[in-house]
Simulated scan of single mutants.
Amino acid sequence: MELVYVISGLAVGFTVGLTGVGGGSLMTPILLWLGINPATAVGTDLLYAAITKAGGVVVHQRNRNIDWKVTGLLASGSLPAALLTVLALHILKPDVAILNAIITHALGFALLLTASAIIFKKRLMALIQKHAGHWLNLPAAKLGKATVLTGIALGIIVTLSSIGAGALGTLALFLLYPLLPTSRLVGTEIAHAVPLTAIAGLGHAGLGHVDWWTLVSLLTGSLPGIWLGSHLTHHAPDRILRPCLAVMLAMVGGKLIM
Protein backbone atom coordinates (compact mmCIF):
# COMPACT_ATOMS: atom_id res chain seq x y z
CA MET A 1 0.00 0.00 0.00
CA GLU A 2 1.46 3.35 -1.08
CA LEU A 3 1.93 5.56 1.98
CA VAL A 4 1.62 8.72 -0.12
CA TYR A 5 -1.95 7.76 -1.11
CA VAL A 6 -2.88 6.95 2.48
CA ILE A 7 -1.58 10.37 3.58
CA SER A 8 -3.40 12.06 0.68
CA GLY A 9 -6.63 10.35 1.70
CA LEU A 10 -6.09 11.41 5.30
CA ALA A 11 -5.49 15.05 4.31
CA VAL A 12 -8.51 15.24 1.99
CA GLY A 13 -10.75 13.40 4.45
CA PHE A 14 -9.71 15.78 7.21
CA THR A 15 -10.43 18.80 4.99
CA VAL A 16 -13.86 17.46 4.01
CA GLY A 17 -14.74 16.76 7.63
CA LEU A 18 -13.49 20.17 8.69
CA THR A 19 -15.03 22.36 5.97
CA GLY A 20 -17.73 20.22 4.37
CA VAL A 21 -16.28 20.73 0.88
CA GLY A 22 -13.23 19.78 -1.14
CA GLY A 23 -13.56 16.01 -1.68
CA GLY A 24 -13.31 15.63 -5.45
CA SER A 25 -12.05 19.19 -5.78
CA LEU A 26 -8.91 18.22 -3.88
CA MET A 27 -8.53 14.50 -4.51
CA THR A 28 -8.57 14.54 -8.32
CA PRO A 29 -5.90 17.30 -8.63
CA ILE A 30 -3.79 15.44 -6.06
CA LEU A 31 -4.02 12.23 -8.09
CA LEU A 32 -3.02 14.17 -11.21
CA TRP A 33 -0.07 15.67 -9.34
CA LEU A 34 0.98 12.15 -8.25
CA GLY A 35 1.20 11.13 -11.90
CA ILE A 36 -2.12 9.34 -12.46
CA ASN A 37 -3.65 10.14 -15.86
CA PRO A 38 -6.81 12.32 -15.84
CA ALA A 39 -9.29 9.59 -16.84
CA THR A 40 -8.08 7.20 -14.13
CA ALA A 41 -7.94 10.00 -11.55
CA VAL A 42 -11.60 10.89 -12.23
CA GLY A 43 -12.81 7.27 -12.20
CA THR A 44 -10.95 6.44 -8.99
CA ASP A 45 -12.16 9.58 -7.25
CA LEU A 46 -15.80 8.93 -8.21
CA LEU A 47 -15.83 5.55 -6.46
CA TYR A 48 -13.86 7.06 -3.57
CA ALA A 49 -16.58 9.71 -3.16
CA ALA A 50 -19.41 7.16 -3.36
CA ILE A 51 -17.91 5.01 -0.61
CA THR A 52 -16.93 7.85 1.73
CA LYS A 53 -20.32 9.57 1.45
CA ALA A 54 -22.36 6.38 1.88
CA GLY A 55 -21.85 6.51 5.63
CA GLY A 56 -23.15 10.08 5.64
CA VAL A 57 -26.46 8.94 4.16
CA VAL A 58 -27.03 6.56 7.08
CA VAL A 59 -26.32 9.29 9.64
CA HIS A 60 -28.49 11.90 7.93
CA GLN A 61 -31.36 9.45 7.46
CA ARG A 62 -31.29 8.65 11.17
CA ASN A 63 -31.56 12.38 11.86
CA ARG A 64 -34.31 12.76 9.22
CA ASN A 65 -32.17 15.24 7.27
CA ILE A 66 -32.95 13.90 3.79
CA ASP A 67 -35.73 15.17 1.53
CA TRP A 68 -36.22 12.07 -0.62
CA LYS A 69 -38.63 13.81 -3.00
CA VAL A 70 -36.00 16.38 -3.95
CA THR A 71 -33.34 13.65 -4.08
CA GLY A 72 -35.53 11.73 -6.50
CA LEU A 73 -36.03 14.75 -8.76
CA LEU A 74 -32.29 15.42 -8.91
CA ALA A 75 -31.51 11.76 -9.52
CA SER A 76 -34.12 11.52 -12.31
CA GLY A 77 -31.97 14.02 -14.20
CA SER A 78 -28.44 13.25 -13.03
CA LEU A 79 -28.41 9.44 -13.22
CA PRO A 80 -29.59 9.20 -16.87
CA ALA A 81 -27.21 12.05 -17.74
CA ALA A 82 -24.32 10.19 -16.10
CA LEU A 83 -25.23 6.95 -17.89
CA LEU A 84 -25.52 8.69 -21.26
CA THR A 85 -22.21 10.48 -20.74
CA VAL A 86 -20.46 7.19 -19.92
CA LEU A 87 -22.24 5.50 -22.85
CA ALA A 88 -21.01 8.24 -25.18
CA LEU A 89 -17.45 7.60 -23.97
CA HIS A 90 -17.93 3.87 -24.58
CA ILE A 91 -19.31 4.37 -28.10
CA LEU A 92 -17.01 7.14 -29.26
CA LYS A 93 -13.93 5.54 -27.68
CA PRO A 94 -11.94 8.74 -28.11
CA ASP A 95 -8.19 8.74 -28.36
CA VAL A 96 -6.62 8.64 -24.89
CA ALA A 97 -4.95 12.01 -25.43
CA ILE A 98 -8.25 13.57 -26.56
CA LEU A 99 -10.16 12.00 -23.66
CA ASN A 100 -7.59 13.25 -21.15
CA ALA A 101 -7.81 16.73 -22.69
CA ILE A 102 -11.62 16.72 -22.40
CA ILE A 103 -11.51 15.55 -18.79
CA THR A 104 -8.75 18.01 -17.89
CA HIS A 105 -10.75 20.97 -19.23
CA ALA A 106 -13.96 19.72 -17.61
CA LEU A 107 -12.03 19.35 -14.36
CA GLY A 108 -10.67 22.90 -14.60
CA PHE A 109 -14.12 24.31 -15.33
CA ALA A 110 -15.66 22.40 -12.40
CA LEU A 111 -12.88 23.60 -10.06
CA LEU A 112 -13.52 27.23 -10.99
CA LEU A 113 -17.26 26.79 -10.43
CA THR A 114 -16.62 25.13 -7.07
CA ALA A 115 -14.25 27.91 -6.00
CA SER A 116 -16.85 30.52 -6.96
CA ALA A 117 -19.53 28.63 -5.04
CA ILE A 118 -17.34 28.56 -1.92
CA ILE A 119 -16.40 32.25 -2.14
CA PHE A 120 -19.85 33.66 -2.88
CA LYS A 121 -21.99 31.12 -1.04
CA LYS A 122 -22.83 33.37 1.92
CA ARG A 123 -23.66 36.35 -0.32
CA LEU A 124 -25.85 34.23 -2.53
CA MET A 125 -27.59 32.74 0.49
CA ALA A 126 -28.27 36.18 1.95
CA LEU A 127 -29.60 37.46 -1.38
CA ILE A 128 -31.83 34.44 -1.94
CA GLN A 129 -33.20 34.50 1.60
CA LYS A 130 -34.09 38.16 1.09
CA HIS A 131 -36.06 37.36 -2.03
CA ALA A 132 -37.22 33.88 -1.08
CA GLY A 133 -40.83 34.89 -1.56
CA HIS A 134 -40.40 34.96 -5.32
CA TRP A 135 -39.22 31.36 -5.34
CA LEU A 136 -42.08 30.29 -3.08
CA ASN A 137 -44.53 31.52 -5.72
CA LEU A 138 -42.94 29.30 -8.38
CA PRO A 139 -45.40 26.55 -9.44
CA ALA A 140 -44.47 23.12 -8.14
CA ALA A 141 -44.32 21.70 -11.68
CA LYS A 142 -41.80 24.35 -12.82
CA LEU A 143 -39.72 23.90 -9.67
CA GLY A 144 -39.66 20.16 -10.29
CA LYS A 145 -38.51 20.65 -13.90
CA ALA A 146 -35.81 23.08 -12.75
CA THR A 147 -34.61 20.48 -10.23
CA VAL A 148 -34.44 17.77 -12.91
CA LEU A 149 -32.51 20.10 -15.27
CA THR A 150 -30.11 20.90 -12.43
CA GLY A 151 -29.60 17.18 -11.94
CA ILE A 152 -28.79 16.75 -15.65
CA ALA A 153 -26.12 19.46 -15.47
CA LEU A 154 -24.61 17.95 -12.32
CA GLY A 155 -24.65 14.47 -13.85
CA ILE A 156 -22.59 15.58 -16.84
CA ILE A 157 -20.14 17.71 -14.86
CA VAL A 158 -19.58 15.08 -12.16
CA THR A 159 -19.14 12.23 -14.66
CA LEU A 160 -16.53 14.11 -16.68
CA SER A 161 -14.65 15.70 -13.81
CA SER A 162 -15.67 13.92 -10.55
CA ILE A 163 -16.27 17.42 -9.14
CA GLY A 164 -19.44 19.31 -8.33
CA ALA A 165 -21.57 16.84 -6.38
CA GLY A 166 -20.62 18.57 -3.11
CA ALA A 167 -20.26 22.34 -3.25
CA LEU A 168 -22.15 22.86 -6.52
CA GLY A 169 -24.89 20.41 -5.57
CA THR A 170 -25.50 22.04 -2.20
CA LEU A 171 -25.50 25.54 -3.70
CA ALA A 172 -27.89 24.47 -6.46
CA LEU A 173 -30.27 23.03 -3.88
CA PHE A 174 -30.17 26.25 -1.89
CA LEU A 175 -30.96 28.27 -5.02
CA LEU A 176 -33.98 26.07 -5.73
CA TYR A 177 -35.16 25.53 -2.16
CA PRO A 178 -34.04 28.58 -0.12
CA LEU A 179 -36.24 27.80 2.88
CA LEU A 180 -35.09 24.21 3.26
CA PRO A 181 -33.07 23.89 6.52
CA THR A 182 -29.31 23.70 5.99
CA SER A 183 -29.12 20.28 7.62
CA ARG A 184 -31.65 18.93 5.11
CA LEU A 185 -29.81 20.62 2.23
CA VAL A 186 -26.58 18.85 3.18
CA GLY A 187 -28.30 15.52 3.82
CA THR A 188 -30.23 15.68 0.54
CA GLU A 189 -27.07 16.55 -1.41
CA ILE A 190 -25.19 13.60 0.09
CA ALA A 191 -28.09 11.22 -0.60
CA HIS A 192 -28.07 12.35 -4.23
CA ALA A 193 -24.27 12.30 -4.58
CA VAL A 194 -23.84 8.63 -3.56
CA PRO A 195 -25.77 6.99 -6.44
CA LEU A 196 -24.52 9.60 -8.91
CA THR A 197 -20.84 9.08 -8.11
CA ALA A 198 -21.34 5.30 -7.85
CA ILE A 199 -22.93 5.02 -11.31
CA ALA A 200 -20.41 7.37 -12.90
CA GLY A 201 -17.53 5.60 -11.14
CA LEU A 202 -18.68 2.14 -12.22
CA GLY A 203 -19.05 3.48 -15.76
CA HIS A 204 -15.45 4.66 -15.68
CA ALA A 205 -14.43 1.30 -14.19
CA GLY A 206 -15.95 -0.36 -17.25
CA LEU A 207 -13.65 1.80 -19.35
CA GLY A 208 -10.67 0.72 -17.25
CA HIS A 209 -10.40 4.13 -15.57
CA VAL A 210 -10.14 2.97 -11.94
CA ASP A 211 -6.95 2.15 -10.03
CA TRP A 212 -8.34 -0.21 -7.39
CA TRP A 213 -5.19 -0.43 -5.26
CA THR A 214 -4.97 3.36 -5.11
CA LEU A 215 -8.66 3.49 -4.14
CA VAL A 216 -8.08 1.16 -1.18
CA SER A 217 -5.09 3.24 -0.06
CA LEU A 218 -7.07 6.48 -0.25
CA LEU A 219 -9.95 5.03 1.78
CA THR A 220 -7.54 3.75 4.42
CA GLY A 221 -6.49 7.32 5.13
CA SER A 222 -9.68 9.24 4.40
CA LEU A 223 -12.12 7.47 6.72
CA PRO A 224 -10.25 8.35 9.94
CA GLY A 225 -9.46 11.77 8.45
CA ILE A 226 -13.15 12.56 7.99
CA TRP A 227 -13.90 11.40 11.54
CA LEU A 228 -11.17 13.63 12.98
CA GLY A 229 -12.08 16.67 10.88
CA SER A 230 -15.77 16.36 11.75
CA HIS A 231 -14.96 16.47 15.46
CA LEU A 232 -12.82 19.61 15.04
CA THR A 233 -15.14 21.48 12.69
CA HIS A 234 -16.55 23.73 15.42
CA HIS A 235 -13.04 24.92 16.34
CA ALA A 236 -11.88 25.72 12.80
CA PRO A 237 -11.59 29.38 11.63
CA ASP A 238 -14.10 28.97 8.80
CA ARG A 239 -13.60 32.55 7.55
CA ILE A 240 -9.97 31.64 6.82
CA LEU A 241 -10.23 28.00 5.73
CA ARG A 242 -12.89 28.38 3.05
CA PRO A 243 -11.31 31.36 1.20
CA CYS A 244 -7.92 29.61 1.22
CA LEU A 245 -9.51 26.46 -0.16
CA ALA A 246 -11.35 28.46 -2.83
CA VAL A 247 -8.19 30.29 -3.95
CA MET A 248 -6.29 27.03 -4.23
CA LEU A 249 -9.06 25.41 -6.27
CA ALA A 250 -9.29 28.44 -8.56
CA MET A 251 -5.53 28.38 -9.19
CA VAL A 252 -5.55 24.66 -10.01
CA GLY A 253 -8.66 25.04 -12.19
CA GLY A 254 -7.22 27.95 -14.13
CA LYS A 255 -3.96 26.09 -14.73
CA LEU A 256 -5.81 23.01 -16.03
CA ILE A 257 -7.89 25.07 -18.48
CA MET A 258 -4.92 27.08 -19.74
Rank of each mutant, 00 (worst) to 15 (best):
E189M: 06
V210L: 00
L245G: 13
L83N: 01
W135K: 06
M248H: 14
L136P: 02
A167G: 02
G35P: 00
K142C: 14
M27W: 08
L241A: 08
G55H: 06
A205I: 13
H105D: 05
G55Q: 06
A140I: 11
A39N: 02
A126D: 15
A97E: 11
G221D: 03
A165W: 08
H134R: 05
R64H: 14
V12R: 01
S162K: 02
L232P: 12
A54D: 00
D95C: 10
L111S: 10
K53C: 03
G108I: 04
L219K: 05
L127I: 06
A141H: 09
S230K: 08
W212T: 13
V16M: 08
L89D: 10
A101M: 06
I163Q: 04
F120H: 09
K142F: 15
A250K: 11
Y5Q: 05
A106I: 11
A250P: 15
A153H: 03
K69T: 10
S183T: 10
L173I: 03
G22T: 01
L99C: 06
T15D: 04
L46G: 00
I51D: 01
L228I: 15
L207G: 08
M251T: 15
V59I: 13
N100R: 07
A54T: 10
D67H: 12
A50G: 01
G229F: 08
R62A: 06
